[in-house]
């Protein structure tokens, strides 16, 4: 009986200790600079990584990053294999039915078309997009023919090798690529505002964690640190809070 009691006490101690130092596992894609990518050292890096780490510090949580394929990023969240998604994921009604979002930490984005020449037919031609994104959904609604790819890299490659007339993606993802292409890639058409900004995705049942992160995001918006981070990663033209 005595051993039973001590075991029970040890167990309950272990349980409370486990809760106190619980690790929040943060899911990301690691293939979408400047939001998230793998740096030269092989670690995750980018706007969302820096932001996520700061949010965890403010919320006094221990956080660990996990990379996951974009296609299965939501199923693995609801199955509790990690606890949050920070992967440049726009807040949309469709996704909101399955998971919850914090308030946006990145203002509603503009998406843009990029092609190899100014007169590319982005309106009725073939347009590349990453599968299961708001951009792909937007193209599918229009007159252009959509071809989908699993990764953002492939959507741009499709334009370079002529498979698609244009690629439609986040302006901020495309901009560094256009800048570095030396005139090979150009923006075409007008930017299109899409989505309700980017937020952190969480399980719908995880209301407490959502409130914690919401509070941390609010505090970063209020003291201006979020704006500094946005400018650091996206340049002066970025929308701010």
């Amino acid at each position: 009986m005595k051993t039973l009691l001590t075991t029970a006490a040890a167990l309950s101690l272990a349980a409370s200790a486990a809760l106190a130092q619980d690790v929040i596992r943060m899911g990301t894609e690691g293939a979408y600079p400047p939001y998230n990518f793998i740096n030269d050292a092989g670690d995750v890096d980018g706007f969302e990584i820096e932001l996520g780490n700061e949010l965890c510090t403010r919320a006094e949580l221990t956080c660990e990053w996990v990379t996951n394929d974009w296609d299965s990023i939501i199923p693995n969240l609801v199955s509790s294999n990690y606890d949050t998604i920070m992967a440049g994921m726009s807040i949309t009604d469709e996704r909101d039915e399955v998971i919850d979002f914090t308030q946006d930490y990145y203002p509603p984005t503009e998406s843009a078309y990029v092609a190899t020449s100014e007169d590319a037919d982005w309106e009725t031609g073939v347009v590349a997009g990453q599968a299961a994104t708001i951009q792909a959904a937007h193209v599918a609604e229009g007159d252009a023919a959509l071809i989908e790819f699993a990764t953002p890299e492939e959507t741009v490659a499709a334009v370079r090798n002529g498979e698609a007339d244009a690629v439609f993606a986040d302006y901020d993802y495309l901009k560094p690529l256009v800048d570095a292409s030396g005139g090979e890639l150009v923006f075409v058409g007008e930017p299109v505002p899409l989505g309700d900004g980017i937020g952190m995705g969480l399980r719908e049942s995880d209301t407490e964690l959502k409130e914690t992160f919401d509070a941390a995001i609010t505090s970063m918006k209020e003291d201006g640190t979020l704006n500094e981070m946005l400018v650091k990663w996206f340049g002066e033209d970025i929308g701010q809070y």
């Binding site: 690691g30 293939a31 600079p33 400047p34 990518f37 793998i38 740096n39 030269d40 890096d45 980018g46 996990v66 990379t67 996951n68 394929d69 296609d71 299965s72 693995n76 294999n81 990764t151 890299e153 741009v156 490659a157 370079r160 560094p176 690529l177 800048d179 570095a180």
Partner: peptide
């Protein structure tokens, strides 16, 4: 990689992808 294990094809795709100067010391094309 569908199972979250980073194999050689994942790394080849990741390393071979276009790298712009902002995010790496070794920028290169596709």
């Amino acid at each position: 990689f569908l199972l979250g294990v980073e194999d050689i094809v994942y790394w080849a795709r990741e390393l071979g992808g276009t790298k712009t100067p902002q995010f790496t010391s070794y920028p290169h094309g596709d």
